[in-house]
Nucleic acid binder design. Sequence first.
DNA 1: GAATCGACGGTACTCAGTACCATCTTCCCA
DNA 2: TGGGAAGATGGTACTGAGTACCGTCGATTC
Lengths: 227, 227
Amino acid sequence: MSKSAARTRLADAAFALFDERGYEQTTVEDIAERAGVGRTTFFRHYRSKEDVIFPDHDRLLVLISDRLATSSHSTALVAVSDAVRLVLLHYVDEGDLARRRYALTSKVAALRDREIAGVARYQRLFREFISEWMGDPTESASLRAELMAAAVVAAHNHVLRRWLRGEASDPLAEVDEAMREVLALFPASLSPRETGAGTTVVAFRTEQDLDALLPSLRRLIEGGPER
Amino acid sequence: MSKSAARTRLADAAFALFDERGYEQTTVEDIAERAGVGRTTFFRHYRSKEDVIFPDHDRLLVLISDRLATSSHSTALVAVSDAVRLVLLHYVDEGDLARRRYALTSKVAALRDREIAGVARYQRLFREFISEWMGDPTESASLRAELMAAAVVAAHNHVLRRWLRGEASDPLAEVDEAMREVLALFPASLSPRETGAGTTVVAFRTEQDLDALLPSLRRLIEGGPER
DNA sequence: GAATCGACGGTACTCAGTACCATCTTCCCA
DNA sequence: TGGGAAGATGGTACTGAGTACCGTCGATTC
């Protein structure tokens, strides 16, 4: 497994030293020394100095990817929400470790950039998934997929940062609410299959009063499926 | 100005060598040598090896910041659209240079990360501006600001990448259209000041038919300003 | 008991980025 | 006209991340 004794000792030593002296002021040799291993061993367990802070980034990516893959067309949006929950849950489970990482990324520009680059990869996954789900090669659909992916990731980050700052007592409930808000932004993204019988009122504003536009509304409804 | 002869020679040499050997296979010393200057001089003109590819990133940031600053409350959204146009226009003006940069960022992971980090800074500017513009300390408003900023930047990137790939003949028109689409996602973000007299129909779906829900609609309208 | 395999430590190297210093040019003023 | 100040330059030396390679030690296996 990925649970070597040296590996965890290295991570502990790294975070401790980063707290004491700061990230830039700590060399890889310092970390290895405190962990009681050689410098070479550090790079055997972590690809880089930054990697010791973001160890299971790749694992999260496959986690998302797997969750998205196990979904049918009709459950696509559920899968998206679920994947977001998965990621958030992972950080919440990390607990204090995630908060220490947040403290570091808030101070050190290089680490913030690294964090952002990771998030961009999540966003790419979501974008590709949503785009494929829409199944519409149109340029407009492509843009909508991009917007939706950006919104999904932004919502996740928003809630995650609130929790990291200690402002969210129930992050899971908050992320559910945030995802509802995100999905509400994209009403027309629901494919016709999801649209059952009844009345769909589109959003618009007009100078006319209700009675004046009633005929138009009726025409739209009676017009049936097309448009 | 920032137009030193050595500076442009360095940039030319860098791009040429990156094309010939690839980014990682080119050392700063190689670049300096081909430009006919010392290695030290390179670092006087560019803070890092990556900087030679993203030279006026900071300048773009102040460009956005300035454009956003010169706006009143009622013209805030215009300022946002305008700032986005400004950035896009900058890249379009770069022409071939921007496309060569795109080719590099597509191949080299480190450069892609750097690019993304820069975009994140734009997004931060927009988020703070929009948040302040909303003037609502609510958690929900904070999320909406975040979503809107993410959407704005995503729309810009979408059009920019299309242009970089040669898929957009009129990127300015496309970005205007994309921004319209983005702003259309956030109807309720319009402050009451922007909302004149007339009828506002909210979006919802129901199993009832139009006649059944007409009373509710009337009640909402006659209820007046309060909810 | 010997061979094998994997984890480890050490050495040496490349290269980005920083610090410092000496030089050279240019321009300005006495 | 000469001298000096300021700025740009080039060179040297250093730190530190990351890579390559090799020899060693220990456990497992045949």
